[in-house]
Amino acid sequence: MVISRENILKKTHYGLNIYAYVLRQYYSETTVLSLKGRDCGVTRNPFNGGKSTLQINVVENKAIHYDTELTDFKGDVFDFASYHFKLVDDEELLLKINTELHLNLEVKKENELSWLDDPDDTWYAYSSFYKAPIRNVFPNQKVRLHQIFERITSDKYKSITEQFRAIKDPKEARKFKANHFDYVTFSGVFSKRNDDSLIEHSSLLTIDFDHLENLEELKQQLLNDEYFETELLFTSPSGEGLKWIIRIDLSKVSHNEYFIAVANYIKHTYNIEVDQSGKDISRACFLSHDPLAFLHKRHQKL
C-alpha cells in the first residue's frame, strides 16, 4: 500500500490511532481515548490548556474533532496531527504520520524524468537594449528578461542609481538620467527606437508608477494581482516608483487599446493614475539598481 490519506485512515482505525498517539505525547499516564461505537466522548485538549473539551468521533469513515469551548478548533484527524507536528505541507505531514506510527506504507518514488511530462511554461520575450545616453536611438543588442533582470539586480547600475537619487535639483536629475542610464524597449525589438521601426512585438507592456506614497504595499498588490501575472517588477531610478512589466495578448486588440484597458483597470482597482507614455510601443524604460527586483520563474536562464 502506498502512502495516502485513504490508506492511512485504513491502517489507523479511521484515524483514531493518530488521535491516540498525539494525545499520549501529552498525557502518557492516562487513558486518552475511550471508544463507544463511533463516539470517543470528551477528552483533554492539549491545545486548549489541557481542558476536557475535546470531542472526537467518526463520521463517514474518518475521525473528526471539535472543541466544546473553542468554536474555531475543529477539523479532521489530519488537521489535528498538523497542529501537533507543526506541519502544513500535506506530503510532509503524511510522511511524518507514516514514520511516527510505524505504518510501513510505501513511499511513492518520483520518476526522475517525470518533469519532462510537465507543461512547458518557459516563454521567451525579446526586447531591445540601448546604451546610454537616451539620444542614442539605435539598439545595442536583443535581450531576454532574465538578462535585464541580471543587470538590474547586480551592482552594474548601483553607483549611478545612488548618484541620481542624491541629486536634489529636478532639472539636473532629468539631465543626469538621460545621459547615464541604459534603457530598454520592453514591448519589442526595434531597428531604431520609434514605433515605425518595430521588428517584433514582445507581447510585453510596461506600466510606470511614479511618486508612490507606499511603494512596498503596491509592489505586493501587483505581485498578487488576480488578473495580470507579473513578468518583471523593479524600482525606478528615483526610488519612488515602480516599473511593472506584464504580458499582453495582441491577437484581438492593439497595443494602445490594451494599455488603455490596463490603465483603467489600475485606476479602478488601486486608485492610481499611471504614466500615459506607456501607450507608446517604443517607450524607453531606464534600468536602475534594484537587488530586490522580481522576475517570473518562466523566464529562466537556459
Rank of each mutant, 00 (worst) to 15 (best):
M1P: 10
R5M: 08
R5A: 02
I8P: 00
I8Y: 00
L9W: 01
L9M: 03
K10S: 12
L16W: 00
L16E: 00
N17C: 09
N17A: 09
Y19L: 12
Y19M: 11
Y21V: 02
R24M: 07
Q25C: 02
Q25A: 05
Y26Q: 09
Y27D: 08
S28D: 13
S28G: 14
E29H: 06
E29R: 04
T31R: 01
S34G: 07
D39S: 12
G41A: 13
R44P: 00
R44D: 01
R44I: 00
N45A: 04
K51L: 02
L54W: 08
V58C: 02
N61D: 15
H65Y: 14
G75S: 05
D76F: 01
D76H: 05
S82W: 07
H84V: 01
H84Q: 08
V88H: 01
L95A: 10
N98Q: 09
T99H: 14
L101M: 12
H102M: 13
L103G: 07
E106P: 06
V107H: 07
K108A: 03
L113C: 09
S114G: 08
W115Q: 14
L116R: 14
L116G: 13
L116M: 13
D120Q: 09
D120I: 01
D121L: 15
W123A: 07
Y124H: 06
S128L: 04
A132G: 15
V143G: 07
R144M: 10
L145N: 07
R151Y: 14
I152Y: 01
K156L: 11
S159M: 10
I160M: 12
Q163K: 08
K168V: 14
D169M: 07
K175R: 12
V189C: 03
K192P: 02
K192R: 08
S197F: 02
I199L: 13
I199V: 15
H201A: 06
S202H: 10
L204V: 03
L204S: 04
L204H: 02
L205E: 03
L205C: 09
T206S: 09
I207G: 03
I207A: 06
D208P: 06
D208V: 10
L212I: 10
E213A: 12
N214T: 00
Q220M: 14
Q220C: 08
L222Y: 08
L223W: 15
L223V: 15
L223Q: 15
D225Y: 11
Y227L: 14
E231M: 05
L233Q: 04
L233W: 00
F234V: 00
F234Q: 04
T235C: 05
K243P: 07
K243E: 12
I248Q: 02
I248F: 04
I260N: 03
V262T: 10
A263C: 05
A263S: 15
H268P: 09
T269Q: 13
Y270V: 13
I272A: 09
E273K: 08
D275V: 01
G278H: 01
K279V: 15
A284R: 09
F286T: 01
L287A: 01
S288T: 11
S288H: 12
P291G: 09
L295P: 02
L295D: 00
L295R: 06
R298I: 12
